[in-house]
Design a protein around this nucleic acid. Structure first.
Lengths: 335, 335
DNA sequence: GCGGTTCGGCAAAACCGTTTTCAAGCTATA
DNA sequence: TATAGCTTGAAAACGGTTTTGCCGAACCGC
């Protein structure tokens, strides 16, 4: 156990008095090996604290046993959750995740993919991001690739996403059912696909309810708490009337809730409030926030499992990922 | 640009009509190379879309250009923030982070380190965690290692942490200054170093203020929002009197705030509330939460920079990391 | 019971794609 | 013209896996 220099397969071979091919065979279980030698090898491995050099292994075997993950904005709850899911899904599969941050910047993302490719990842999981579909196709032709949290038309089974449109539609309709007619919306960054789909769902539900879209009640936020505050301030200054506010994510809902309280507008008595994402803290907002839960962790896990299956050339499939309306206490029924 | 097979250094050499040693030299800028050949090589690299195989590189050069990061509980704001800092600090240094999750479990953590070692990381950054100091010393003897967010006695400059004791002391004293005498405390998981130090700081400030410790006002939580709720419920059932509550992290403060509101106890008018960590959402709590900011990102960045310096055999140092009292609106002055 | 075939186990060697050492060839300088 | 100084190609690592081929034992048919 006490060896300062790291030991190589040759050391083991010498120590166990066998050839290094035999050591490799024992370690990888590729070919049967006589019991006695096998034991000797394992003993030597333990004695010399041998850890195979993954680089040499990767070089020789052509497999790196590594999955590359491109994530966005480490630190944002949703993406972290997905990433965390991928990591969890890779657990005990023998694959190790290699994580790089795309930071929502196309160029950085592309560079990230190149880095991962250079590091010989066996497969790629791209979480969100804004690389063009053409580029993604190119990447996919080089290495098995799965996309999570982004909707791509021709990617069939290798794409895990959530129907943002439908979820926003359902959420808005829920507000309508509760008697709300004047529903304001704080959008996300409108060049992000999710923000657009959520907005579209909101608009469609309104239309189907026979309510005209009122631009006065719409504010373009940027997914930050601060922009939630700004949205409410803006609505009030505009003199827009609203009995409910739909924020395109929970963070903005928090901001909105604070701004409302500052103006002595009670939630939900005076104004109802809903968010999107179901962040952990949302259950502890005062009042607990009604929102839409996305199966972030599950999507990550599923993507990881799928890619592992894929790499073993076994069949895989990514199920549909349903969102879930989480009804809590931030909405009141209008009579 | 359109090559299906991945190209190797030999392809480049052949294409540019030079030896592969020359290609390597151009790529790594180790030895001057004639202008013409240099140009030919670079052209070939571009044309064939050559990406050096990092495995071969690592094998030959002995350097993997990889830093291993052991983090805890991916998905927890504080650790994510530190991790995020490390990644940021590694940006454009040529090193790539390799992240594994220790999940606050000694055995998993140890396995994580072994994985990283097998992958030939050039250095290690361990964020938090509970590996024994003896084991850490052993690890450090094999590879440059830095610890973040954990206080270790003999690690001098390779340990970045925050003085939890002092911060908790200051925070408690602030409450005392505001006239509070009956200060309840919701602790973290009491086998975590941070939780203990925060508790100690709280107790010491009370003692120095001449206030006896009242067990009735102390609840052992587990850092979760739910345990914040439970704490308040418990205090109320016990009939404990308190004008202020110090939660050992912001999440529990959120839980506490919700529980108080459910009992129609106003914050801060009836009870003041403080947390610890300064999570992003804490600024948007209603009311905005007074708490202690930890320079999580900064610690991560500093650790990354230090390890890179270390690997270049240049001098490095980790500064002291001060916490900052963030005064917001959840505390009121008792007259 | 004997010669020939098959087969399992293992050592030796080839290979993976780089970097690095070594020595040789060339050029420019004194 | 000898010599120092560059540039460069060939070859030797790096530490594994995979292929090849040899050896002896077991098995078969006659």
């Amino acid at each position: 156990m006490e060896t300062d220099k790291k030991s190589t397969i040759d050391d083991i071979a010498r120590f166990a008095k066998v050839s290094k091919s035999t050591v490799s065979r024992v370690l990888n279980d590729t070919t049967p090996v006589a019991k006695a030698k096998r034991k000797a090898v394992l003993a030597a491995v333990k004695k010399l604290d041998f850890k195979p050099n993954q680089f040499a292994r990767g070089l020789a075997g052509g497999q790196s046993m590594t999955i590359g993950i491109v994530t966005q904005n480490i630190g944002s709850p949703f993406y972290d959750s997905v990433t965390s899911g991928v990591i969890k899904g890779l657990d005990a599969t023998g694959y190790t995740p290699l994580i790089v941050d795309g930071q929502w910047d196309v160029d950085i993302e592309k560079a990230a993919v190149q880095t991962l490719l250079g590091r010989q990842v066996d497969g790629l999981v791209i979480v969100g991001g804004s690389i063009t579909e053409t580029d993604l196709d190119k990447i996919r032709s080089q290495r098995p690739t799965f996309i999570v949290a982004r909707e791509l038309d021709d990617w069939g089974g290798s794409c895990a996403f959530v129907n943002n449109y439908q979820a926003a539609y359902d959420l808005t309709q829920y507000l309508l059912e509760q008697g709300h007619r004047e529903i304001a919306h704080i959008t996300g960054i409108m060049r992000h696909q999710d923000a657009i789909k959520r907005y579209d769902g909101y608009a469609a539900a309104l239309a189907d309810g026979g309510i005209p879209l009122d631009k006065q009640r719409i504010f373009e936020g940027n997914f930050s708490g601060q922009s939630g505050i700004l949205a409410i301030e803006t609505f009030l200054i505009r003199g827009a009337r609203f009995s409910a506010v739909f924020a395109a994510n929970d963070e903005m809902a928090f901001g909105a809730r604070l701004a409302l309280s500052r103006r002595n507008i009670r939630v939900p008595e005076d104004v109802s409030l809903v968010g999107f994402d179901d962040q952990p803290l949302s259950a502890f907002m005062t009042p607990p926030l009604t929102t839409v839960a996305q199966p972030a962790l599950e999507m990550g896990i599923a993507a990881a499992q799928a890619i592992v299956q894929r790499l073993k050339n076994k069949p895989f499939n990514l199920p549909d990922f349903p969102t879930r309306l989480v009804l809590r206490e931030s909405v009141t029924r209008l009579r």
